[in-house]
Design a protein around this nucleic acid. Structure first.
Length: 256
DNA sequence: GCGACAG
DNA sequence: ATCTTGTCGC
């Protein structure tokens, strides 16, 4: 009588557990910060419009340098086994300056809307470990494979997003979703950005967009600017590297 | 009651 | 997330 924590058809998740999860999300949401709240500043962007020339006076403030990315990959044979990977990239070189992975057995199934309860614990461990192991490279902002405020439990949100009502959106955000990026950001007290690769509606258009949403302590405009710094592939480099290296690490140890 | 559902 | 070849394009 072993439980199956793998499948998307969530096996034995009790409604009371889901209620607990909802309460946790709601309480963590109270700690969520959706404005810029970090001690670094964005590097100057190459093609920037009117507001590009802000106060370049602050020579005291350091410029964003270390951007992190996290992702999980899964075993083909045993879908309970996953590899969680944390990478940190130097934004000026785009090189990976830190990498760490850990293979774990998942105890919680994937339940849409509650991804964080499955994936956040391992990722938190990796972050905490790095905090003591190599604090000098610790990411100033973290890109998370999953959504932030744009979250399945807040379906009305993307409508607002698409309409560009960003200021209006702010007031709505607080009572909206709370995805993995938020969850992880609040628990690690680290600025995060959510990167979704498929959101809750099928893209019928020819283009395959990614979905950038606020995680924690980074505003949506800033999040977008940061993601644009990695404009080489569809998926921004930190997430992409975490994904690649997570799969590589897997092949090196267990069977693919 | 069923219906769209991040990874 | 994962199972899967060739293929179109920068």
């Amino acid at each position: 009588m072993e439980e199956d924590a793998s499948t998307s058809g969530n096996s034995n998740i009790s409604p009371q557990l889901v209620n607990e999860w909802i309460e946790i999300q709601d309480s963590l949401k109270k700690r969520l910060i959706t404005d810029d709240e970090f001690d670094w500043k964005l590097p100057p962007m190459k093609d920037q419009d009117s507001e590009g020339m802000e106060e370049n006076q602050d020579s005291n403030v350091e410029i964003l340098k270390y951007v992190g990315g996290v992702d999980l990959s899964f075993s083909r044979n045993d879908s309970l086994i996953a590899c969680a990977t944390l990478v940190v990239l130097d934004i000026s070189t785009l090189e990976v300056v830190h990498e760490d992975s850990s293979i774990i057995k998942l105890r919680i199934p994937y339940v849409p809307g509650f991804l964080a309860f499955r994936e956040a614990p391992v990722l938190l461990e990796l972050l905490k470990k790095m905090e003591t192991t190599s604090p000098t490279l610790y990411p100033q902002v973290l890109m998370v494979d999953g959504n932030g405020l744009l979250h399945p439990r807040a379906p009305f949100l993307w409508i607002s997003l698409l309409c560009h009502y960003w200021s209006l959106l702010k007031s709505l955000e607080r009572s909206a979703g709370f995805g993995l990026a938020c969850h992880l950001g609040v628990l690690a007290d680290l600025p995060t950005i959510g990167i979704g690769k498929n959101a809750m509606w099928t893209t019928k258009s020819s283009l395959k967009p990614i979905f950038i949403s606020v995680g924690h302590r980074v505003s949506l405009p800033s999040a977008i600017k940061i993601v644009k710094l990695f404009g080489r592939f569809r998926v921004p480099e930190p997430i992409r590297q975490a994904d690649i290296r997570s799969k590589d690490f897997f092949r090196k140890h267990g069977l693919s």
